[in-house]
C-alpha cells in the first residue's frame, strides 16, 4: 500500500500546475499505484482568509465517493488571521480534516509567534498533526512576486533550524516536516530533542540523497512516502524508497515507508 503524505490541489499563482485537481491527482495515483493522498489546498497559502481554501477543498472532495475514499484533507490555518479558532473547529468537525498545514513565511509570522504556539498546543490537544515545510518552490526560480528567502543570500531558505523552535516550544505535539530540502543539522541538545519528538518527514525533499544513512541516523519510523505533488514530479519521492537496497531497508522497512509509518502516525 502507498500513502502520499504530501500532496496538494489548487493553484500556484506564478506558474501553471498540472494534475492540481482531485480528479487529475487521482489519475496520477492510479497510474503510479498510490492508494491514499493527504492533500491540502494551495490556494490557502495565498488567500488571506485561508478558510475559503479549506471550504473549496471540502466541496471538491465531497463531490465524489472516490475522493472521499482516497483523499485525507488537511486544513490550512493562519494563526495570525481573524477567526482561525472557529475555522479550525469547522475544518475538523464539519469538513473532516485530519491535520493542519501552516506557512509561517507566506503568512508572515515568526516560528515562535505566540499565536502559532497557541495553534500548535490546540492541535496537540485535538490530537491533530501540524505540518511545516522547508519551502514550496526553489527560491532560485522564484517569481518576483514570491517571498524573498533566497538560497545563498543573506536571507536564505529555511533549514531545520528555522522550524525547530516550535518543536522545542511544544515538544509533545505531533509534527510533519515536509519537503526537506536543506540542512537537517541541529546542535547536539536540539538534535536530541528533535529525535525524541513525534515527527514524520516525507521523501520529497531535494536534499534527501542518501536515504539509507538517514534511516540509520533518524530511525526508520520517521520517514514516509511523499511527493510534494503537483509542484514536484510524482515519482522521485517514491524512487527514494524503492531504490533502497535490502541492506539499507528490508521489505518490512520499505512497507513502513510506503504506508506503515503514515498509518500509524495519522491513526488511519
Amino acid at each position: 500500500m502507498l500513502i502520499d503524505i504530501n500532496a496538494y490541489v489548487g493553484h500556484w499563482p506564478f506558474m501553471q500546475l498540472k494534475y492540481n485537481t482531485c480528479e487529475a491527482l487521482g489519475q496520477r495515483m492510479d497510474r503510479f499505484g498510490v492508494d491514499v493522498s493527504l492533500i491540502s489546498n494551495l490556494n490557502g497559502i495565498f488567500y488571506k482568509n485561508t478558510q475559503s481554501a479549506n471550504k473549496e477543498l471540502y466541496e471538491e472532495i465531497k463531490a465524489s465517493k472516490r475522493y472521499r475514499d482516497r483523499f485525507v484533507p488537511f486544513a490550512v490555518i493562519n494563526p495570525i488571521y481573524a477567526g482561525w479558532q472557529y475555522d479550525l473547529e469547522e475544518c475538523v468537525r464539519k469538513f473532516g480534516m485530519k491535520g493542519i498545514r501552516v506557512y509561517p513565511k507566506y503568512h508572515d509570522y515568526e516560528i515562535n509567534d505566540p499565536s502559532l504556539i497557541e495553534l500548535v498546543k490546540k492541535a496537540r490537544d485535538m490530537n491533530l498533526p501540524v505540518a511545516f515545510n522547508y519551502k514550496m518552490v526553489d527560491s532560485r526560480q522564484r517569481s518576483w512576486m514570491d517571498i524573498d528567502y533566497v538560497a545563498y543570500t543573506p536571507r536564505p531558505e529555511w533549514t531545520l533550524k528555522n522550524i525547530f523552535p516550535i518543536i522545542k516550544e511544544v515538544p509533545d505535539a505531533r509534527y510533519m516536516i515536509l519537503n526537506v530540502t536543506n540542512s537537517m543539522q541541529l546542535n547536539e541538545a536540539d538534535a536530541a530533542l528533535f529525535n525524541k519528538a513525534n515527527v514524520l518527514m516525507d521523501t520529497s525533499g531535494r536534499t534527501l540523497t542518501d536515504m539509507g544513512s538517514l534511516l540509520k541516523t533518524q530511525g526508520k519510523e520517521r520517514f514516509a512516502f511523499g511527493t510534494h505533488s503537483p509542484i514536484l514530479d510524482y515519482l522521485t519521492g517514491m524512487l527514494r524508497i524503492e531504490a533502497l537496497r535490502e541492506n539499507e531497508a528490508d521489505a518490512a522497512t520499505k512497507e513502513l515507508l510506503r504506508s506503515g509509518n503514515a498509518k500509524k502516525f495519522l491513526g488511519l
Partner: peptide, 20 residues
C-alpha cells in the same frame, strides 16, 4: 475547483477501490 459532475452510486462503488 467547484464540484465535478457526480457519478451514480454504482459507478462510484466500482471506481473507488485500489489502484494497480
Amino acid at each position: 475547483l467547484s464540484a465535478p459532475g457526480r457519478l451514480t452510486a454504482k459507478q462510484e462503488e466500482a471506481l473507488s477501490s485500489k489502484p494497480e
